[in-house]
Protein backbone atom coordinates (compact mmCIF):
# COMPACT_ATOMS: atom_id res chain seq x y z
CA UNK A 1 0.00 0.00 0.00
CA UNK A 2 1.47 3.38 -0.97
CA UNK A 3 2.27 5.61 1.99
CA UNK A 4 -0.53 7.86 3.08
CA UNK A 5 -3.23 5.68 1.55
CA UNK A 6 -5.68 4.38 4.14
CA UNK A 7 -6.97 0.87 3.98
CA UNK A 8 -10.69 0.72 3.42
CA UNK A 9 -12.37 0.22 6.77
CA UNK A 10 -15.64 -1.52 7.48
CA UNK A 11 -17.89 -1.34 10.52
CA UNK A 12 -19.25 -4.56 11.87
CA UNK A 13 -20.47 -6.08 15.07
CA UNK A 14 -18.55 -8.61 17.10
CA UNK A 15 -21.22 -11.14 16.04
CA UNK A 16 -20.62 -10.36 12.38
CA UNK A 17 -16.90 -10.61 12.94
CA UNK A 18 -17.21 -14.11 14.40
CA UNK A 19 -19.53 -15.03 11.53
CA UNK A 20 -17.01 -13.73 9.00
CA UNK A 21 -14.35 -15.83 10.70
CA UNK A 22 -16.52 -18.96 10.65
CA UNK A 23 -17.39 -18.42 7.00
CA UNK A 24 -13.78 -17.81 6.07
CA UNK A 25 -12.77 -21.03 7.81
CA UNK A 26 -15.49 -23.03 6.06
CA UNK A 27 -14.44 -21.54 2.72
CA UNK A 28 -10.73 -22.00 3.15
CA UNK A 29 -10.56 -25.47 4.60
CA UNK A 30 -12.94 -28.28 3.67
CA UNK A 31 -11.92 -30.14 6.82
CA UNK A 32 -13.63 -27.46 8.86
CA UNK A 33 -17.23 -27.98 9.90
CA UNK A 34 -19.35 -26.22 12.49
CA UNK A 35 -21.48 -28.14 14.92
CA UNK A 36 -23.53 -27.37 17.94
CA UNK A 37 -27.00 -26.79 19.23
CA UNK A 38 -29.10 -24.68 16.87
CA UNK A 39 -26.17 -23.57 14.73
CA UNK A 40 -28.00 -24.54 11.53
CA UNK A 41 -31.68 -23.90 10.98
CA UNK A 42 -31.94 -21.44 13.84
CA UNK A 43 -28.75 -19.62 12.87
CA UNK A 44 -27.04 -19.93 16.22
CA UNK A 45 -28.27 -18.99 19.67
CA UNK A 46 -26.53 -15.62 19.24
CA UNK A 47 -27.15 -15.54 15.48
CA UNK A 48 -23.45 -16.04 14.80
CA UNK A 49 -24.00 -18.70 12.14
CA UNK A 50 -27.01 -17.08 10.51
CA UNK A 51 -27.02 -17.97 6.82
CA UNK A 52 -24.26 -20.56 7.15
CA UNK A 53 -26.58 -23.54 6.71
CA UNK A 54 -27.82 -22.22 3.37
CA UNK A 55 -24.31 -21.36 2.27
CA UNK A 56 -22.46 -24.53 3.32
CA UNK A 57 -25.09 -27.25 3.75
CA UNK A 58 -26.20 -29.42 6.61
CA UNK A 59 -23.19 -31.71 6.49
CA UNK A 60 -20.85 -28.86 7.39
CA UNK A 61 -23.17 -26.78 9.53
CA UNK A 62 -24.54 -29.47 11.78
CA UNK A 63 -27.37 -29.11 14.21
CA UNK A 64 -26.67 -31.47 17.07
CA UNK A 65 -29.00 -32.94 19.65
CA UNK A 66 -28.81 -31.36 23.10
CA UNK A 67 -26.01 -33.48 24.46
CA UNK A 68 -22.91 -31.42 25.14
CA UNK A 69 -20.85 -34.35 26.35
CA UNK A 70 -21.55 -36.39 23.21
CA UNK A 71 -21.19 -33.70 20.58
CA UNK A 72 -18.12 -32.12 22.12
CA UNK A 73 -16.69 -35.64 22.39
CA UNK A 74 -17.59 -36.24 18.75
CA UNK A 75 -15.81 -33.01 17.82
CA UNK A 76 -12.72 -34.23 19.65
CA UNK A 77 -13.00 -37.60 17.91
CA UNK A 78 -13.35 -35.95 14.50
CA UNK A 79 -10.22 -33.90 15.22
CA UNK A 80 -8.38 -37.12 16.14
CA UNK A 81 -9.52 -38.43 12.76
CA UNK A 82 -8.00 -35.57 10.77
CA UNK A 83 -10.79 -32.98 10.73
CA UNK A 84 -10.79 -29.37 11.94
CA UNK A 85 -14.08 -29.07 13.81
CA UNK A 86 -15.51 -25.88 15.24
CA UNK A 87 -17.79 -26.90 18.08
CA UNK A 88 -20.14 -24.27 19.45
CA UNK A 89 -21.43 -24.50 23.01
CA UNK A 90 -24.32 -22.11 23.65
CA UNK A 91 -23.04 -21.01 27.03
CA UNK A 92 -20.21 -21.95 29.30
CA UNK A 93 -22.73 -23.19 31.86
CA UNK A 94 -23.77 -25.88 29.37
CA UNK A 95 -20.11 -26.44 28.70
CA UNK A 96 -19.88 -27.98 32.15
CA UNK A 97 -21.77 -30.96 30.74
CA UNK A 98 -18.83 -31.45 28.39
CA UNK A 99 -16.18 -30.86 31.03
CA UNK A 100 -15.27 -34.54 31.11
CA UNK A 101 -14.62 -34.67 27.37
CA UNK A 102 -12.60 -31.45 27.41
CA UNK A 103 -10.54 -32.16 30.52
CA UNK A 104 -10.19 -35.93 30.48
CA UNK A 105 -9.92 -36.40 26.73
CA UNK A 106 -9.04 -33.32 24.68
CA UNK A 107 -6.49 -31.96 27.13
CA UNK A 108 -4.80 -35.27 27.94
CA UNK A 109 -4.68 -37.21 24.70
CA UNK A 110 -1.39 -35.95 23.31
CA UNK A 111 0.45 -36.48 26.58
CA UNK A 112 -1.24 -39.77 27.42
CA UNK A 113 -0.39 -41.14 23.96
CA UNK A 114 3.24 -40.04 24.22
CA UNK A 115 2.84 -37.51 21.41
CA UNK A 116 1.06 -39.82 18.97
CA UNK A 117 -2.20 -37.92 18.87
CA UNK A 118 -3.13 -34.39 17.89
CA UNK A 119 -6.51 -32.97 18.80
CA UNK A 120 -6.91 -29.87 16.63
CA UNK A 121 -10.44 -29.03 17.77
CA UNK A 122 -11.73 -25.51 18.36
CA UNK A 123 -14.53 -25.08 20.87
CA UNK A 124 -16.37 -21.76 21.01
CA UNK A 125 -18.34 -20.93 24.13
CA UNK A 126 -20.43 -17.92 25.05
CA UNK A 127 -19.64 -16.69 28.53
CA UNK A 128 -20.48 -13.97 30.99
CA UNK A 129 -23.34 -12.11 32.62
CA UNK A 130 -25.33 -8.97 31.85
CA UNK A 131 -28.43 -10.20 30.07
CA UNK A 132 -30.66 -10.92 33.07
CA UNK A 133 -30.64 -14.65 32.44
CA UNK A 134 -29.88 -15.52 36.06
CA UNK A 135 -27.74 -18.13 37.70
CA UNK A 136 -27.59 -20.90 35.12
CA UNK A 137 -26.69 -18.93 31.99
CA UNK A 138 -24.42 -16.15 33.22
CA UNK A 139 -21.25 -17.48 34.68
CA UNK A 140 -17.64 -17.00 33.69
CA UNK A 141 -15.83 -20.30 34.00
CA UNK A 142 -12.97 -19.53 31.62
CA UNK A 143 -10.71 -19.35 34.66
CA UNK A 144 -11.49 -22.99 35.43
CA UNK A 145 -10.57 -24.03 31.92
CA UNK A 146 -7.42 -21.91 32.08
CA UNK A 147 -6.36 -24.12 34.99
CA UNK A 148 -5.92 -27.07 32.67
CA UNK A 149 -2.70 -27.98 30.88
CA UNK A 150 -3.06 -29.30 27.34
CA UNK A 151 -5.50 -26.72 26.04
CA UNK A 152 -5.23 -23.11 24.93
CA UNK A 153 -7.75 -20.53 26.08
CA UNK A 154 -8.58 -17.41 24.09
CA UNK A 155 -10.85 -14.52 25.03
CA UNK A 156 -11.43 -12.12 22.14
CA UNK A 157 -12.53 -8.77 23.52
CA UNK A 158 -12.45 -6.72 20.34
CA UNK A 159 -14.08 -7.00 16.94
CA UNK A 160 -10.64 -7.47 15.43
CA UNK A 161 -9.87 -10.44 17.69
CA UNK A 162 -13.34 -11.87 17.16
CA UNK A 163 -12.56 -11.78 13.45
CA UNK A 164 -8.98 -12.98 13.63
CA UNK A 165 -8.56 -15.48 16.44
CA UNK A 166 -10.59 -18.34 14.98
CA UNK A 167 -8.39 -19.00 11.96
CA UNK A 168 -5.26 -18.92 14.10
CA UNK A 169 -6.92 -21.30 16.57
CA UNK A 170 -7.71 -23.70 13.74
CA UNK A 171 -4.02 -23.83 12.80
CA UNK A 172 -3.08 -25.02 16.28
CA UNK A 173 -2.33 -28.72 16.63
CA UNK A 174 -3.88 -28.78 20.11
CA UNK A 175 -7.36 -28.01 21.44
CA UNK A 176 -8.31 -24.34 21.66
CA UNK A 177 -11.27 -22.94 23.58
CA UNK A 178 -12.55 -19.52 22.58
CA UNK A 179 -14.68 -17.68 25.11
CA UNK A 180 -16.92 -15.06 23.53
CA UNK A 181 -18.57 -12.76 26.06
CA UNK A 182 -22.29 -12.70 25.32
CA UNK A 183 -22.53 -8.94 25.97
CA UNK A 184 -20.04 -8.27 23.19
CA UNK A 185 -21.96 -9.77 20.26
CA UNK A 186 -23.81 -6.52 19.56
CA UNK A 187 -20.73 -4.33 20.01
CA UNK A 188 -19.60 -2.50 16.88
CA UNK A 189 -16.10 -1.81 15.79
CA UNK A 190 -14.04 -0.85 12.75
CA UNK A 191 -11.89 -3.25 10.86
CA UNK A 192 -9.79 -3.09 7.73
CA UNK A 193 -11.78 -4.62 4.90
CA UNK A 194 -9.19 -7.35 4.46
CA UNK A 195 -8.80 -8.10 8.18
CA UNK A 196 -7.74 -11.68 8.79
CA UNK A 197 -5.96 -13.89 11.26
CA UNK A 198 -4.31 -12.37 14.32
CA UNK A 199 -1.58 -13.82 16.47
CA UNK A 200 -2.83 -15.55 19.60
CA UNK A 201 0.07 -15.68 22.00
CA UNK A 202 0.37 -12.13 23.28
CA UNK A 203 -1.55 -9.82 25.54
CA UNK A 204 -2.24 -6.34 24.13
CA UNK A 205 -1.92 -2.94 25.72
CA UNK A 206 -5.23 -1.33 24.76
CA UNK A 207 -4.46 2.01 26.40
CA UNK A 208 -1.00 3.05 27.50
CA UNK A 209 -0.55 4.77 30.85
CA UNK A 210 2.08 5.19 33.50
CA UNK A 211 0.26 5.30 36.87
CA UNK A 212 -1.46 1.94 37.25
CA UNK A 213 -1.95 -1.25 35.21
CA UNK A 214 -5.54 -2.40 34.81
CA UNK A 215 -5.30 -6.01 33.67
CA UNK A 216 -8.37 -7.68 32.26
CA UNK A 217 -9.84 -9.68 29.36
CA UNK A 218 -13.05 -10.39 27.45
CA UNK A 219 -16.22 -8.62 28.42
CA UNK A 220 -14.55 -6.66 31.20
CA UNK A 221 -12.17 -4.92 28.79
CA UNK A 222 -14.69 -2.26 27.84
CA UNK A 223 -15.69 -1.58 31.43
CA UNK A 224 -12.02 -1.28 32.24
CA UNK A 225 -11.43 1.15 29.37
CA UNK A 226 -14.38 3.17 30.70
CA UNK A 227 -12.76 3.14 34.14
CA UNK A 228 -9.49 4.38 32.61
CA UNK A 229 -11.47 7.22 31.08
CA UNK A 230 -12.93 8.11 34.49
CA UNK A 231 -9.46 8.04 35.99
CA UNK A 232 -8.04 10.20 33.22
CA UNK A 233 -10.42 12.98 34.26
CA UNK A 234 -8.76 12.86 37.65
CA UNK A 235 -5.32 13.00 36.12
CA UNK A 236 -4.57 9.33 36.61
CA UNK A 237 -3.07 7.66 33.57
CA UNK A 238 -4.12 4.03 33.68
CA UNK A 239 -2.65 1.43 31.37
CA UNK A 240 -5.16 -1.19 30.19
CA UNK A 241 -3.84 -4.66 29.42
CA UNK A 242 -6.09 -7.07 27.51
CA UNK A 243 -4.87 -10.60 28.22
CA UNK A 244 -6.41 -12.04 25.01
CA UNK A 245 -4.90 -15.46 25.73
CA UNK A 246 -5.77 -16.84 29.16
CA UNK A 247 -3.66 -19.93 28.76
CA UNK A 248 -0.76 -19.76 28.35
CA UNK A 249 -0.54 -16.33 29.96
CA UNK A 250 1.77 -13.75 28.42
CA UNK A 251 3.86 -13.10 31.52
CA UNK A 252 6.18 -10.76 29.69
CA UNK A 253 3.53 -8.20 28.78
CA UNK A 254 1.77 -8.48 32.15
CA UNK A 255 4.91 -8.13 34.24
CA UNK A 256 6.33 -5.52 31.89
CA UNK A 257 3.32 -3.30 32.41
CA UNK A 258 3.30 -3.76 36.18
CA UNK A 259 7.01 -3.06 36.34
CA UNK A 260 6.45 0.24 34.54
CA UNK A 261 3.41 1.41 36.52
CA UNK A 262 4.26 -0.25 39.86
CA UNK A 263 0.59 -0.79 40.55
CA UNK A 264 -1.86 -3.43 39.40
CA UNK A 265 -5.62 -3.86 39.41
CA UNK A 266 -6.93 -7.18 38.14
CA UNK A 267 -10.41 -7.18 36.68
CA UNK A 268 -11.99 -10.61 36.23
CA UNK A 269 -15.65 -11.46 35.79
CA UNK A 270 -14.98 -14.80 37.46
CA UNK A 271 -15.39 -15.22 41.21
CA UNK A 272 -12.43 -14.12 43.30
CA UNK A 273 -11.66 -17.35 45.17
CA UNK A 274 -9.39 -19.63 43.17
CA UNK A 275 -9.77 -17.43 40.10
CA UNK A 276 -7.74 -16.34 37.12
CA UNK A 277 -7.20 -13.06 38.98
CA UNK A 278 -5.74 -15.07 41.87
CA UNK A 279 -3.30 -16.65 39.44
CA UNK A 280 -2.34 -13.29 37.96
CA UNK A 281 -1.86 -11.85 41.41
CA UNK A 282 0.36 -14.74 42.44
CA UNK A 283 2.49 -14.34 39.33
CA UNK A 284 2.96 -10.65 40.03
CA UNK A 285 3.95 -11.44 43.63
CA UNK A 286 6.38 -14.12 42.50
CA UNK A 287 8.06 -12.09 39.80
CA UNK A 288 7.48 -8.38 40.40
CA UNK A 289 6.98 -8.08 44.16
CA UNK A 290 9.80 -5.58 44.62
CA UNK A 291 8.53 -3.47 41.73
CA UNK A 292 5.21 -2.82 43.44
CA UNK A 293 4.40 0.42 45.23
CA UNK A 294 1.03 -0.82 46.47
CA UNK A 295 -0.79 -4.09 47.13
CA UNK A 296 -2.43 -5.64 44.07
CA UNK A 297 -6.16 -5.00 43.93
CA UNK A 298 -8.80 -7.24 42.47
CA UNK A 299 -12.22 -6.49 41.07
CA UNK A 300 -14.21 -9.69 40.59
CA UNK A 301 -17.80 -10.84 40.53
CA UNK A 302 -19.55 -11.03 43.90
CA UNK A 303 -19.36 -14.58 45.22
CA UNK A 304 -23.00 -15.40 44.71
CA UNK A 305 -24.89 -17.10 41.88
CA UNK A 306 -25.71 -14.39 39.34
CA UNK A 307 -29.14 -12.91 40.23
CA UNK A 308 -31.90 -12.02 37.78
CA UNK A 309 -32.90 -8.41 38.68
CA UNK A 310 -30.93 -5.88 36.67
CA UNK A 311 -29.72 -3.79 39.59
CA UNK A 312 -28.57 -6.89 41.50
CA UNK A 313 -26.83 -8.27 38.47
CA UNK A 314 -25.07 -4.94 37.95
CA UNK A 315 -24.09 -4.89 41.59
CA UNK A 316 -22.60 -8.39 41.30
CA UNK A 317 -20.30 -7.57 38.38
CA UNK A 318 -17.18 -5.46 37.98
CA UNK A 319 -18.23 -1.99 36.82
CA UNK A 320 -16.25 1.07 35.70
CA UNK A 321 -16.81 2.74 39.08
CA UNK A 322 -15.60 -0.22 41.13
CA UNK A 323 -12.61 -0.66 38.84
CA UNK A 324 -11.71 3.04 39.13
CA UNK A 325 -12.10 2.85 42.91
CA UNK A 326 -9.68 -0.09 43.06
CA UNK A 327 -7.20 1.88 40.96
CA UNK A 328 -7.46 4.83 43.33
CA UNK A 329 -6.76 2.54 46.26
CA UNK A 330 -3.46 1.52 44.71
CA UNK A 331 -2.53 5.18 44.43
CA UNK A 332 -2.96 5.84 48.14
CA UNK A 333 -4.59 8.64 50.07
CA UNK A 334 -4.20 11.41 47.53
CA UNK A 335 -6.70 9.60 45.31
CA UNK A 336 -8.54 7.26 47.69
Amino acid sequence: MPPGERKAMVRMTYREAVRAAVREALHRDPRVFLMGEDVGAYGGCYAVSKGCLAEFGAERVRDTPLCESAFVGAGIGAAMGGMRPIVEIMTVNFGLLALDQIVNNAATLRHMSGGQLSVPVVIRLATGAGRQVAAQHSHSFEGWFAHIPGIKILAPATVEDARGMLWSALQEPDPVLIFEHAMLYAMEGELPEDAGAVEISHAAIRRPGRDVSLITYGGSLHKTLAAAELLAREGIEAEVVDLRTLRPLDDETILGSVTRTRRAVLVDEGWRSGSLSAELSARIMESAFYELDAPVQRVCTAEVPIPYPKHLEDAALPQPESIAAAARRTLGERHG
Binding site: S69, A70, F71, V72, G73, A74, G75, I76, G77, A78, A79, M80, G81, G82, M83, P85, Q101, N105
Partner: peptide, 10 residues
Protein backbone atom coordinates in the same frame (compact mmCIF):
# COMPACT_ATOMS: atom_id res chain seq x y z
CA UNK B 1 -18.01 -43.59 23.17
CA UNK B 2 -18.48 -40.03 21.81
CA UNK B 3 -14.93 -39.99 20.41
CA UNK B 4 -15.70 -43.06 18.31
CA UNK B 5 -18.76 -41.34 16.87
CA UNK B 6 -16.59 -38.36 15.95
CA UNK B 7 -14.01 -40.54 14.25
CA UNK B 8 -16.75 -42.31 12.34
CA UNK B 9 -18.14 -38.93 11.36
CA UNK B 10 -14.72 -37.91 10.03
Amino acid sequence: IPLAAGMAFA
